[in-house]
Each structure stands twice: as C-alpha cells, then as structure tokens.
Design a protein around this nucleic acid. Sequence first.
DNA 1: GCCGTTTTCGGCCCGACTGTTTTCAGTCG
Length: 576
Amino acid sequence: MPVHNEDIAAAFDEIAELLELQQANPFRVRAYRTAARNIRSLGEELTDLVASGVDLTELPGIGEDLAKKIREFVTRGRLAYLDSLRRQLPPGVVDLLQVPGLGPKRVRALYEQLGVHSLAGLAKAARDGRLQSLPGFGPKLTAQILHRIETRRTEKKKRFLRAVARQYAEPLRERLAAIEGVEAAVIAGSYRRGRETVGDIDLLVTSGRPAPVMQALVEYDEVAEVLSRGSTRASVVLRSGLQVDLRVVAAESFGAALHYFTGSKAHNIAIRKLGRAQGLKINEYGVFRGQRRIAGRTEAEVYAAVGLPLIPPPLREMRGEIEAARAGRLPRLVECADLQGDLHAHTRETDGQLDLEALARAARARGLKYLAITDHSQRLKMVHGLDAGRLARQMAAIDALNDRLRGIRLLKGIEVDILEDGSLDLPDRVLCQLDLVVASVHSRFGLSRRRQTERLLRALDQRCLSILGHPTCRLIFQRDPIDIDFDRVLEAARQRGCALELNAQPQRLDLDDVHARAAAEAGIPIAISSDAHSEADLDGLEHGVLQAQRAWLQPQQVLNTRPLRELRRFLKSTLA
DNA sequence: GCCGTTTTCGGCCCGACTGTTTTCAGTCG
C-alpha cells in the first residue's frame, strides 16, 4: 500500500492528540498540527518527494525531526513513535476528546482519577455521580456531557458543501443585516475563503448595539440549540446540524475582525508575527502600537500596517501568498466577469432539463457570449446518450439556431465517454466534425492506479479531444477520486495541447484547487465549466471561479476567458 | 518541534465564554 499524504497528516494529528493528553509542551503539539495541515495542502505526494530525494526540511513547518518521521512512514508504512505513544493509553481515551467541553486536561483527569477510557464509561460515571466528585466537574458540565453523549453530538462534526451551507447561512445573514443599527453582516471563515466544504459558519456583524443582534440569532426559528451566548459572541446549531458562530464588533474594528475571522488560522498567525516584528499587536479589534490603534477599519488597512497589499481571501492558506504579496507578485485572480462562455452543458436530449433554445437564452441572459452543447455519448444508456445519428441531428439543429439567435453562439460538442481501454465512445470521423470534444470517465472508477493512469494516457492520445472533463471523477462526500499518477496525466495533457476542466458542480469541483494550480503552472489551459443540467446550474459557474481563485488562476490561464475567435483557434488545434 | 532583518536559544497569537469558582482554569475558535 502506498503511503498518501493524508495518512501521514492523520498520524501527525494523532500524535498531537496523544501528546496533548500527556500534557506535553503545547508548542510541540502545535508543531505536529501545523505539519499535518501543511502536508494536507501539499501539491505533491510526500512518497514521491522522498523517492526523488528532495530535502523535506524545505517544506514549511517541517524540520529535521519531522522529516525523519516522514521518511520512516514512507519507507516502513508506520511510525515507531506513534506506536509507542499509543501503547501508553487505552485506545478509547482519544475518543473522549471529541466530546464538546472535554479537552486534554479533563480527559486526563477522567482517565487517571476515575479510570474512564470510553464514551460508555463516561456516560456511566456521569449517571452514577462519580463525575461530579472530580474537581472542575459540576452539575452543569455533567448534565451537558451526558446530553451530548445521548444525542450523539460526540461524533466528528459533519462538514457541509459550501453551496449547501450557503442555503442555510445566507438567509440568516440577511436577517441579521436588516436589524436596525447593523452596518454590515458578512460570512467570514473558510466560507469566505471559498473552500469547497465548510465545518461551520462564521458570521461577522458590525453594530454599535450588539444586544438586538445576539437576541435575533438565538430566536432565529431554525436554531436547534444554543451552545453559548455572551454579549458580543454566540454559537448556535441550526436544525440542519450546521453550527453558526456569531461575533459583533464596532465599525472601527470591522477590517481587523473580518481578517481575523476569515483566517486561515495559519495565515493569521503569520500576519501577526509580521506585526510583532514591527512592534505591532494585531487582534480582532485592530492593529495597535502600544495603546494606540493605528488600523482596523478595513482589511486593506490591516495588511498595509504590516507593509503588504490586500491578499484576497481565497489565497489565505499559507501557500506562498505572503511571499508573493511582499514581492508584489500576487496574481490578478480570474473573476466571473472574465468568463466569456461556458464549455460544458447538457440538454433534454440526454439528462439536461432545458432544450437547446431555452439553454441558449438562459446562458445569454447571464452575459455569456458562447455556450458549448455537450450531451452524453451512446455508452451512457441510462441518460439516453447520443449515437452518431442523433448527434448529427443535434448539430443541424444548432446550426439552425445559430442562424437566428443573436448575442450568443452555440458550439457543437459532446461529452464523450472514455471507455475502459482508453478509447472514446464515438469514432474519430464523427468527433472531428464537432467544434469541441469533452472526454470524461463515467465508469470503472475502481481501476488500479496503473490501469487508470494508462486509460487516461491512452485517451489523451486519441485524435479528437479538446478538454478532459472532471479529471479525477470525485464526488465530495460520496466518491473518492480515481487513482491516477497525476503528474503523468499532466505531462501528457501538456504535450498534447488540450485543456483540463475545472467542473463547477459544487459536489465535483474537479480539478480541485491544488491540482488546478499545478496544471496551470504546467501551462495547461483550464476550462471552468458549469456542466449545467438546468438553468440554475449556469449560476454555479461562480463555485468554479472561487475554486479557480484558490488555485491562483489568472484570466489568461482560463480557456473560456478567451474571445470566441481565439477560442476557436485553440479548439481546432485539438481536433487534428 | 520549528524557527531566525531582534534570536542557533528562547521564544512561539490572542480573546470570549462557561462553569466552577470567590479570582480563575479549561475549552474553543
């Protein structure tokens, strides 16, 4: 079994928890957590880096010791250090940390003084009164713990697709924004950074009068439970299970608070460090020199205080953005307004909801100048995929529609299946008559890395292929990405001169940010595509753009920012 | 355990809320 980055990150996280239970130096604990986080956002597999002899201490947060542990894990598949830590505690103790309200100190007391080392044992101790005998455990905490075990709130907090979280969070945000005295209400956190999934919603409100805002939150009719409530801060859980953390600050602190609650945590720490080096203190209320506030009304002020230009939220992940800002080399990120068209959409001929004309009008209404019609190919029986005959009729219909429709151009395309052997589902003589060919995998997701990689390489070798659709085939929370040697696929795509898709469907977002960045840096054009099956799906392009921003993409790296004439030149070269 | 235009040693972000307390420790983000 090859060792993946996630395996190593998980091991480091577990070490951090075990060390915490042993009351180890908190900074040492943090070092493991930081390393785990950095490893997760790494663009390359550590296994590959080790194999090619790269000096791992070059990576952020990795020193001599952790580099050695990474090498050990990669070569042996396990860590002696982690094994020995595990032997020092019964296995269930770590689970107790998942109970809200229980941290390392309390869990240690539970284990050492009561011998509790499982959730069941904890519930029992709570019921028979032993828990309250421990110092620091009173009746309220005991009742709370019991309630949380009984309502299964002890399981890992569920994450939500960002697009789903928005459906719950946006109406609440609007409700709070409408309260008298409120100047701004913004969703911050990973949501604002555009992460594909979010664990909770961080709402920031500016108002001189926090009380009515706090009141409105706890009285919101979708609130299932109030976790905490103070004068300027509150946490609730909505009926959907989504946790919302609200913070109210004065307008003069808005920028500092927005920066603080947008994160990422690692990015914030780095900015604060920069401040400290210049004798400044940065917190959610502002930037201070001694007692004097010197900035904080806007985010730009906060960055300016440490000598940097504003760094856009999607970049705040400690992936080189601070260095780039310092060097004046922040990218001009692609925006929705840069998109000239959309290169992947389905009609009622297969599994879409709209007919050609309705789809074209919907795209035109959204300001798009061109739209590629890319229904499925014959192999996908379930959605009544197109054979050569039906495709020819659709092409004729598109020609006819283009003749009378103003303001938008339809492109004749197809989303052709990549078969198990890497061949395409329709013959070249058919495909070559189209304006573009999107080729995608829709079957046999479980092939071995070797066979799956060869399948894609063979597909990239076909005569007609313009865009590789949703290249990793992942469905967030539902299906893992297919197992491929991504570097080899990138190299093949680069040599061939095709584009890779960044599919904007919220559950796909495929390529992801890390892969899209690597592809663009390799010089491969990225197509941000809606994969629309309905009118509303066209609006989903913004999810794709957000992911593209997280990938540092500039307009010129995105295929569908090109004007039609330029786009056609590119497409023609892919259908040789 | 990491890291260095203050440092190779001595730092490491900082504040709100809760519960259990009589002034604060633990947890959380």
